[in-house]
Amino acid sequence: MVEAPDRLAERLGRFDALAVAVSGGVDSMTLATFAHRLGRPSVMVIHAVSPAVPQEATERVRALATAEGWQSVVTGAGEFDDPRYRDNPANRCYFCKTNLYDRIRDLTPHVIASGANLDDLGDYRPGLLAAAERDVVHPFVEAEMTKADVRSLARRLGLADIAELAAQPCLASRVETGIAIDAADLAFVESTERRLAASADRGATLRCRITHDGVALELGDDALPRRAELEKIVTALCAESGRRFAGTRAYSRGSMFVRP
Score class of each variant (00 low, 15 high):
A223T: 04
R226D: 12
E240L: 11
L217Y: 04
A239G: 05
G220H: 13
K232I: 00
C238W: 04
T235D: 12
E218T: 03
A216G: 01
L230M: 08
C238D: 06
A236L: 12
E218W: 08
A228C: 02
A216W: 11
L219H: 03
G220S: 01
I233A: 11
V234C: 10
G214Q: 05
L237W: 00
R226Y: 12
L219C: 06
G220P: 05
T235Y: 02
A223C: 09
F245D: 04
G242H: 08
R243Y: 11
L237P: 02
L237G: 00
K232M: 07
A236H: 12
A216V: 13
E231W: 07
A228Q: 06
G220Y: 15
R226A: 04
S241H: 11
L217N: 07
R227T: 06
V234F: 08
V234E: 05
I233R: 02
V215H: 12
P225W: 13
L217E: 05
V215G: 10
D221W: 13
T235I: 02
G214E: 14
R243C: 02
L219M: 07
E229N: 05
V234S: 07
E218F: 00
F245T: 00
R226K: 11
D222E: 11
K232A: 15
L224R: 15
A228Y: 03
S241C: 04
L224Y: 08
G214A: 11
I233S: 02
R227Q: 15
D222V: 14
K232H: 02
L237V: 02
S241P: 01
E231A: 01
E229H: 10
T235K: 15
S241A: 15
K232Q: 12
R244Y: 04
P225C: 14
V234P: 09
C238L: 10
G214R: 06
R227L: 11
G242Y: 09
E240M: 04
L230Q: 09
R244F: 07
A228N: 00
V234M: 09
D213P: 00
E231H: 01
E240G: 08
R226M: 09
E218H: 06
E240Q: 14
A216H: 13
L224S: 01
L217H: 09
E218A: 09
D222M: 14
A216S: 14
E240V: 09
A236Q: 12
R244S: 10
A223S: 12
E231F: 08
V215K: 12
V234A: 10
E240C: 07
T235W: 10
E240P: 01
L230A: 05
A239D: 08
L237T: 00
V234L: 13
E218V: 07
G220T: 04
R226I: 00
E231I: 00
G242K: 07
P225E: 14
G242P: 02
L219Q: 06
A228L: 03
A223F: 13
A239P: 01
E218C: 02
C238K: 06
L219I: 08
A228S: 07
K232D: 15
G214W: 04
L230P: 01
V234D: 05
D221H: 12
E231S: 04
S241D: 13
V215E: 13
A216R: 15
L224G: 06
R244N: 11
R227M: 11
L224E: 15
A228K: 06
R243I: 11
G220N: 05
A236I: 01
E229W: 02
A239H: 02
L219V: 09
E218Y: 08
A236K: 11
A223P: 07
K232G: 10
G242V: 14
E231V: 00
E240D: 14
R243P: 05
R244T: 13
